[in-house]
Design a protein around this nucleic acid. Structure first.
Lengths: 382, 382
DNA sequence: CTGTTAGCGCATTCAT
DNA sequence: ATGAATGCGCTAACAG
């Protein structure tokens, strides 16, 4: 833990500068010299001092990934995919070269900011923020400011699974309550220029729309919605897609829609369980339940089962995300597949600069309706 | 991105040393001075330069976590729990202070070593290695050497879910083929002293034993085993527990046990699927299948279903780990619960030094048999 | 309690 | 193609 460049240099009979050049490989060095250096490195079991080199070079090979909870497969899959892009080629094969710093925010805005500070402290080369954002205007503004500053400082920022940052002007308007945003509004500087904040977006609206349409087509007219936490963009977008589909189908009764919507505390199983009990208390006529995501859907199914209702004969249930376990659930879950892996990979490439950023700074991912056993037509007279 | 300690010092009218003291908080500073410094920090939006401070202090606040794949909830849960321990208290609340570097090894020994090098380069404060180890003697030796060296250099090393490092002497013997290891063997230096390699171990043998006994008690006599990759310690231990139970129950027919064991390529669903087809081809009389883990068990169930066999009426199935989705699978999986979260938390505490290391360097975690719907007595005459 | 002074180990000019 | 010299920003003695 103590052998330094100078030691290697001494052993190889060269200057430390030369050793540095050999190791970073971005400067011509005579083959003979290089070999001698490499041998010395080997013999001394020299390992570069990362902090020292980061200090001198003003850069690091750390990449931050902010997730709600890495134990949730939704985030695990994305993080895994981001990681997959973190390797370069060397010695004739793929070799990891950057390190991923995974930060569990638990969905808390404060921790999100705290982690950003910690990553900035490490001079992380890039930061990927995953999952829905909290919609508190105060926090959004603070976060946007921080991210823009980071981006301006050279840290690549990628949002994966959350909407792009509002441009500053729009945000100001929004906070003033004037949302008369014209088509000819000023160009969004935060997206075109260098130091842009890039986005890989999921189609939460479209997915929920497809799911709701699927249920409507099956004949359901009493569709409950067990939603995620109210203040999340993901929650809002999915709900919007759901309501848009209802509206398209024959008008939306706002009060009724409100009554059929329950907000859970989180994207977890128990939210689905509790939410369903509440929902059926409010609206016993419900014949179908849309869940905030697959995990919530499992809780929905469990609650229904416990109430003596069969899925899908008595009540249909649908999830969202199509996590790996959904196909094997009881019953197999109808859901919407989000390209989590692909999105993560894309985010990783954008973060590394491997992939040229899209024109408008935003890559939109698709969705796919996956119909399985948990949805069926409502019972006659249901 | 350019404001330094000196800038803050100038603004606060103190020396940079004082600023440093205020920020690290481990040295008395007059309240008035502290406030002035803090204000300057705030006004200048100063963020510590991590690399510089790591270099000067010869330490970093990075902690490495090696996992097979962070997308697998088994590892996700452990990693999440480790993370949970990474926060200290400040400003009257829990605040993350160390960063977790998560490394996906994909189960490859080379990548394991590569990542260790990268972490060593970063001067990581600790490294937690999770999941079963690959049993190649060459690699084990290389890995043990590396870990011991790291530990000796002050990096805390914790193995979570894999057996303790063999002590050097034992390893040498093993490689010579002489396994006459006496009870009075030399004390294992790698475990008692400072710089020890600590272990948090799962009871894979005990769990498999319990599961097999459960099936035997139900009346099963033709129990197949769809195992994980052959060279993993986890695979071996679970298989050993399984066979020990068979033996305890009435003698073990080695050939038969061999015929009823199929080794999958990995701990994934498709291994379970393929393995089951192979197993039933070899031994159609099978009335129960033990899977390498829960994920594999899902594949087992899928294959059986596809062959027209009902679970558990025709064939019982059991998993291992009790991952969250297992209770909601179709049918709900009988399995063995491993305290993944608790183990991860413990590993995190040991890695941080929050928890005093156990006497023998090893904390053994328990297991719990969880009987659900996927196991039942064999059909009469089965 | 605070300031001064030396490095920490490396990357990078600038010479040669 | 290589070496010498400088400084990255911070911490840790050491004084005072």
């Amino acid at each position: 833990m103590a052998v330094t460049l100078a030691d290697v240099a001494a052993r190889a009979g060269v200057s430390s500068a030369t050793v540095s050049r050999v190791l970073s490989g971005n400067y011509p060095v005579a083959d003979a010299t290089r070999n001698r250096v490499l041998r010395a490195v080997d013999e001394l079991e020299y390992v570069v001092n990362g902090p020292a080199s980061a200090l001198a070079a003003a850069s690091s090979d750390l990449l931050g990934i902010l997730v709600n909870d890495i134990a949730d497969p939704f985030f695990g899959i994305i993080a895994s995919a981001v990681q997959g892009e973190l390797e370069g080629r060397a010695y004739g094969g793929p070799v990891p070269q950057k390190l991923a710093v995974v930060c569990n925010t638990g969905g808390s805005p404060e921790r999100e900011l705290t982690y950003l500070t910690l990553l900035q402290r490490q001079r992380a080369a890039a930061v990927v923020l995953t999952g829905g954002a909290v919609e508190d205007p105060e926090h959004s503004a603070a976060l946007a400011t921080r991210l823009r500053r980071l981006a301006a400082g050279g840290t690549r920022i990628v949002l994966c699974g959350r909407p792009p940052l509002e441009d500053a002007a729009t945000a100001r308007e929004a906070r003033r309550g004037t949302s008369k945003r014209t088509a000819s509004s000023a160009p969004v500087r935060s997206q075109g220029a260098a130091g842009a904040v890039l986005t890989v977006a999921f189609d939460n609206r479209g997915g929920a729309h497809a799911l709701t349409t699927h249920l409507l087509t099956l004949g359901h007219r009493h569709i409950g919605y067990v939603a995620g936490p109210a203040e999340r963009t993901t929650t809002r977008h999915r709900l919007e897609g759901h309501r848009a589909a209802l509206e398209a189908h024959g008008g939306l009764d706002a009060d009724r829609a409100e009554r059929l919507t329950v907000h859970g505390g989180g994207y977890d199983r128990s939210s689905g369980y509790e939410g369903t009990r509440e929902l059926l208390r409010r609206a016993p006529e419900t014949t179908a339940v849309l869940a905030a995501n697959d995990t919530v859907a499992l809780g929905v199914c469990a609650a229904l089962r416990e109430m003596g209702l069969r899925v899908p004969q008595d009540v249909s249930v649908a999830g969202f995300d199509d996590l790996p376990f959904s196909a094997d659930a009881s019953p197999a879950l109808t859901t919407v597949r989000l390209p989590l892996h692909e999105a993560g990979a894309r985010a990783g490439q954008l973060a590394l600069g491997t992939l040229p950023p899209p024109q408008d700074g935003m890559a939109a991912m698709g969705h796919e309706l996956v119909v399985r056993a948990s949805t069926a037509p409502p019972r006659a007279g249901g």
